[in-house]
Simulated assay, not measured.
Amino acid sequence: MGSPSSSFVQIAYGMAQWARRDGMFTTGQEQPSNFFQSHEELDTAWNSWARLEEKKRAAMGLYIHDAQLASLFHHDPNLRHGAIQLSAAASNELFSAPSAAQWADLMRTHPPQSYLQEHIHFSQPQDLQQHPLPIEIGCAHSRLSCYVTLHGIEAAVAESGRTYHVLPNQQIFDKFRDALTCWYHAYGKTSSPNSPDIFCLMILWHKIFMSLLVDFDSLERAIGRDGSVQAAFAQEYVSTWASSIEAKRCIMHASLINDHLAAMRVDAEPAIHVPGCTFSAAIAWYCYTKFGVADNHAPDCNENLDFPETKALGIRSGQQLFELCGATRPKPTVMGAGPLRGLTDMLNKLGHWDTSKRFAGILGLLLHGDTEGHLLDYS
């Protein structure tokens, strides 16, 4: 019998194959004519457009599902996210139009169709570093499209094939850092404070940044996912990482995930990626406090902790890291790390996802000192 991981991957692969045969991954959207001879023609055009839009949104759901499985089980995605041939989804207002006449009125002012691939920064031929091009902000009307493009960056990170047992290739790191920063300037920064972020996009944004700074597969092996022998092998890498500036940068993002979770409404339904992102943030904090040099969190004269992405957020990361670690020089203990406790508590409260309860159980074992055996079980 295969592992739970292989079973999920096989199911996802089968779904992707079915969707390819049905042509779902090449669904564009023709702009209907604004002139209709009769009500029957208008109704026909509306129904045809709606069927294509539903098909496109189903394909987007498969891209999200594929990226989530790749992140959860640490394997390459099945779909080619960087070459996505879907056009951006329509705005919710247009998609929810109650009549053909209202749909036609909204279509006259709706932005022209564009492909999602065009909205990912590293797909552009110009190298403008951390400045988005006008084409990149073209799907701001659709939060679902913003969600899929962010997953496209996440999948590209997984496809990059980088190993984290050596220092990251700076050119590759800069490529994805710029893409994430441009995404934030195009979409994350422009979201309305009065409009709830139903897709929890900034939580995913921080998690993708973290995946550029640490190998989560190694962190999970170090805490006992594959048994004590594999844990001993992984702990060499994790101990080196936990004493690095990359670790400080990583737990900065982990703490910001905790802040976003704390700001969520009590009655909010978290997006599907939130439990996994919360667990990853907690594991990063645990490994940072458990391994490495005890007094390594405090900045010294050779360290610059004002990271570009936190500058874009208006955060002084050096000061915040100092405060997060208790304003004392030694690292906090596992039980003394406030964000770690907060992330663990949050997993017990995250909606009805059974996965979050399982993740919370794993963290409970870690916090109470049981790090032997096979801790992680996604089945």
Rank of each mutant, 00 (worst) to 15 (best):
residue 162 R to I: 12
residue 96 S to V: 07
residue 372 E to H: 13
residue 272 I to L: 15
residue 329 R to S: 08
residue 50 A to N: 11
residue 123 S to C: 15
residue 342 G to F: 08
residue 179 A to C: 01
residue 334 V to I: 11
residue 309 E to C: 02
residue 178 D to I: 02
residue 372 E to I: 10
residue 107 M to I: 04
residue 119 H to Y: 08
residue 168 P to Y: 02
residue 321 L to M: 02
residue 241 W to D: 00
residue 101 A to K: 14
residue 377 D to Y: 12
residue 336 G to V: 08
residue 135 I to Y: 01
residue 35 F to A: 14
residue 300 D to A: 05
residue 130 Q to F: 11
residue 377 D to P: 02
residue 125 P to I: 01
residue 131 H to M: 11
residue 100 A to M: 06
residue 5 S to F: 12
residue 231 A to Y: 00
residue 18 W to K: 14
residue 146 C to W: 03
residue 150 L to F: 02
residue 73 F to W: 10
residue 112 P to L: 10
residue 185 H to E: 14
residue 307 F to E: 00
residue 45 A to T: 06
residue 214 V to C: 06
residue 310 T to M: 10
residue 235 Q to D: 04
residue 131 H to Y: 12
residue 378 Y to L: 11
residue 254 A to R: 05
residue 82 G to R: 08
residue 135 I to W: 00
residue 83 A to N: 10
residue 378 Y to G: 06
residue 127 D to M: 12
residue 45 A to K: 08
residue 201 L to G: 02
residue 181 T to K: 10
residue 61 G to S: 05
residue 263 A to K: 06
residue 312 A to K: 07
residue 104 A to M: 13
residue 216 F to V: 05
residue 265 R to L: 12
residue 133 L to S: 01
residue 207 K to R: 15
residue 253 H to R: 07
residue 311 K to G: 09
residue 153 I to W: 03
residue 24 M to K: 11
residue 80 R to C: 12
residue 248 K to N: 06
residue 285 W to Q: 06
residue 132 P to K: 00
residue 1 M to N: 10
residue 324 L to I: 11
residue 66 D to S: 04
residue 177 R to H: 10
residue 64 I to S: 09
residue 81 H to R: 03
residue 204 L to D: 00
residue 187 Y to M: 05
residue 82 G to P: 04
residue 144 L to A: 02
residue 16 A to I: 10
residue 192 S to Q: 08
residue 362 I to G: 04
residue 269 E to C: 11
residue 116 L to S: 05
residue 44 T to C: 13
residue 82 G to S: 09
residue 208 I to W: 04
residue 227 G to N: 03
residue 226 D to R: 07
residue 198 I to V: 14
residue 349 K to I: 11
residue 29 Q to M: 13
residue 28 G to H: 08
residue 146 C to Q: 14
residue 122 F to M: 05
residue 159 E to V: 12
residue 279 F to T: 02
residue 134 P to M: 02
residue 269 E to Y: 08
residue 221 R to F: 13
residue 95 F to C: 05
residue 72 L to I: 13
residue 54 E to C: 09
residue 40 E to S: 09
residue 347 L to T: 01
residue 127 D to A: 09
